[in-house]
Nucleic acid binder design. Sequence first.
DNA 1: TCTGGGGTCCTAGGACCC
DNA 2: TCTGGGGTCCTAGGACCC
Length: 391
Amino acid sequence: MFYVQVARLEDPEGAGKQSHLIVGGASGRGVVTSASYEARAFGVTSAMPTARALQLCPLGVVVPVPREACMERSRAIREALISLAPVVQSASIDEFYLDMSGTERMLHDEPLSTTATRIREEVLDRTGISVSIGGGTRKLIAKLATGLAKPAGVRIVEAGREEEFMRQFQLAQIPGVGPALVDTLSQRGLVTVDDALAVDASWLNQWLGEGRGHWLYERIRGHDTSRVDGREPRKSISSERTFFEDMVDEQALERELLKLTVSVCSSLRRGKLQARTVTVKVRDSDFTTRQGSRTLPEPIESDQAVFGVARELMTVLRERRRRPTRLLGVGLTNLTQRGFPNQLALFEAPGAVEGKRERDVARTVDGIRERFGDRALLPGRIMRPPTGDKE
DNA sequence: TCTGGGGTCCTAGGACCC
DNA sequence: TCTGGGGTCCTAGGACCC
């Protein structure tokens, strides 16, 4: 309900007054991001094409995702939580894990459900967002408990009751068990956690492979060794766009690629990061999705260097299979903190894709955008490679 | 009803190194 | 002569999450 709540808060007179509210892509190819409980009653679910949602729920009103506002509120929630719990991990824009270990004395052994209710009220008070809270001895348990706490409630699972708690779920409800695994399992006649609890570990290993078999064996018993970790660094940055209509024109595709590059590079530099791997993703008109990537010997950060690599990758992808393009994306991985060890490049390597000049240009542009707005300075045409003609 | 955009993690094959 | 065993890194694809 997070997106629905934010959409209503942002536009009290519009979205705020709609009971059957659907937040998502309104134009042609959009899907549902989230829907109000009233709309869900008609069978509307997230990731469903908006057109289908409106068919199921003719009273539905679709509004676009208020992206910026959602990130803003998410930050506000996080800040509120940080002041209420010792360790806070953001799991997504609208999910957080709190490790309350060690707070018993400070809270005078207050029951966890009382603490959770207090946190819920505090977050609502400070951010305007109503959250649900689940608690348990493991992240897995807390997450599943949260599902039962909704809407707008609290649910705590006592220590020692984990396996018993797990037995009420279908396998498909376990986080990490998606459509593919559900399919495999149901072919063996396993649908509920109870079904799977009756199966030997060796059978699960044989059916699912050593890794997944063991993983599922542990999960259905409520075991989960992952810790609540407050400071996980970002591992990738990406931007992609599905076009209103499939694209065939190479020039137009290059312009889109440049836009995506500019967007991805600006968040890269905002985070004071550099990247060594550039990935280009293409989705053809028949929904076939392909990608190409290249890892460079040195990390880069400038639009120019990233675009140079991305353009070559896109050319190869387009040559391999020439279909109208539905979606184009640019991703950066292998991220490192700017000016970290790799500075041993005392002299620029002869074939380097990025030099001091490209970095300086990029950072200067960042400065201008910071003072005069993101749209103050935009690329006017396709850039030539650094070694190209005088342009 | 033709299927978004932002991520994370895993696997498997091949190159390469000692 | 036709063949090792350990490891890392890269690439492509896919499952999964919200």
